[in-house]
Amino acid sequence: MNPGSDTPPEWRVYHGTGWPSGSPPSLPKAPPWREFDGEGVAELPEDDHGEFDRRLGKAKGHRVPHRNEISMVNAALYLRRPLLVTGRPGTGKSSLAYQIARELGLGPVLRWPITSRTTLRDGLYGYDAIGRVQDAGTSTGRDGQSGAAPDIGNYVHLGPLGTALLPFERPRVLLIDELDKSDIDLPNDLLNVFEEGEYEIPELIRIAKRAPEVRVLTADRDGSAVISGGVVCCRCFPVVIITSNGERDFPPAFLRRCLNLRIEPPTAQQLGAMVAAQFGATDKVDIARLITEFTERSDELGGLASDQLLNAVHLATELATSGAYQTDEEWQELLKAIWHPLSEGAP
């Protein structure tokens, strides 16, 4: 605390607004054991192709942070540790990654959606060996014989995790979405990558003597990066947001390396802020009444997703614009269809 002041010094760089406030803020220094020495410089894409506005809305000043969100995100930034975000479906877990990226100016979010068949290799990189062989067979030299093999870099494509570990000057935001759907081995497979901040591409290591630097494709739209010696090592550990709907437990070793944030269902105030961010001010529809009906229906069914409310507001707004909006029996039936239960056991 500052001498003679009751106000503690500000330590947070993320404030939960989801909007930048001037130039991107300086990030806290990493702990010595979380410092990495990746060589080279990867270029940060500036254009998110409208993803932030689509995910979060265009209006400023309407966002209400979740409880404990601000402190836990800042702790993850200071410690350079993944943030495991849990909660039931539709509570805004995935949106948190986009809020952090937009507010801190960390570029487009790298999203890695997980299924039961996802492997660590899928997140790191892919190599299209068959495509390269086929292209080599169709190329010919000046003598009419088969030409040189095509550039291998055109057939190596870094995944979201692999791209996030490139040597960026500022960390990228990586969203690992619904990790609880993964094969049982994937959380443990991630441990070494999280600890070391690097990985190898064997296909490039094998040719490193004759091709020490290879430009490959990345997970960014039209993106590419130069890989030296077949090894990718980060300079700034990425901001990793891992979401889980609680469908399974994770190994203790994995949990020890993560910080945990539990997101509860949004309050009426948060729902109102979310609607305002997407639609702005409107007097065509009684938004407060819709939010009340939504929360009551959500409690009755054991939980609804926030985007189900947005669907109802959008439909009501469109109907009101054409003069067809009536809170009659037909509208109530539409609401039942839009606000359908998320679990089979719900009434």
Rank of each mutant, 00 (worst) to 15 (best):
M1R: 08
P3Y: 04
G4L: 13
G4T: 11
S5I: 03
P8R: 07
P8E: 10
P8V: 06
W11S: 09
V13T: 09
G18R: 05
W19S: 13
S26P: 03
P28Q: 11
E35H: 02
E39F: 00
G40N: 06
V41E: 15
E43L: 15
P45G: 07
D47N: 14
D48S: 14
E51M: 13
D53E: 14
L56H: 05
G57W: 12
H62V: 14
R63I: 13
R63N: 13
N74W: 10
A76L: 12
L84F: 12
V85Y: 07
T86Y: 02
G87S: 12
P89K: 07
G92Q: 13
S94K: 08
Y98F: 15
Y98S: 07
R102M: 03
L104Y: 11
L106D: 03
P108N: 07
W112P: 03
T115Q: 08
R117P: 00
D122Q: 00
G126T: 00
Y127I: 01
D128P: 04
A129K: 00
V133I: 10
G141C: 04
R142S: 10
P150M: 00
I152M: 01
V156R: 00
V156D: 00
L158P: 01
L161M: 15
T163E: 06
A164E: 06
L165Y: 10
E169Y: 00
V173W: 05
L174G: 07
I176E: 01
K181T: 07
S182W: 01
I184N: 09
D189I: 01
L191H: 01
L204I: 06
R215S: 09
G223I: 05
V231T: 14
C233D: 01
R235C: 05
C236M: 14
D249R: 15
P251L: 09
R256A: 15
L259C: 09
G272N: 12
A273K: 12
M274T: 13
A276L: 12
D283G: 15
K284V: 08
A288Q: 15
L290N: 09
F294L: 03
F294R: 04
L301D: 02
A305Q: 09
S306V: 14
D307T: 14
L309Q: 10
H314G: 05
A316Y: 04
A316N: 04
E318P: 00
L319N: 07
A320D: 11
Y325N: 09
W331T: 07
S343C: 06
S343P: 00
S343N: 12
P347D: 10
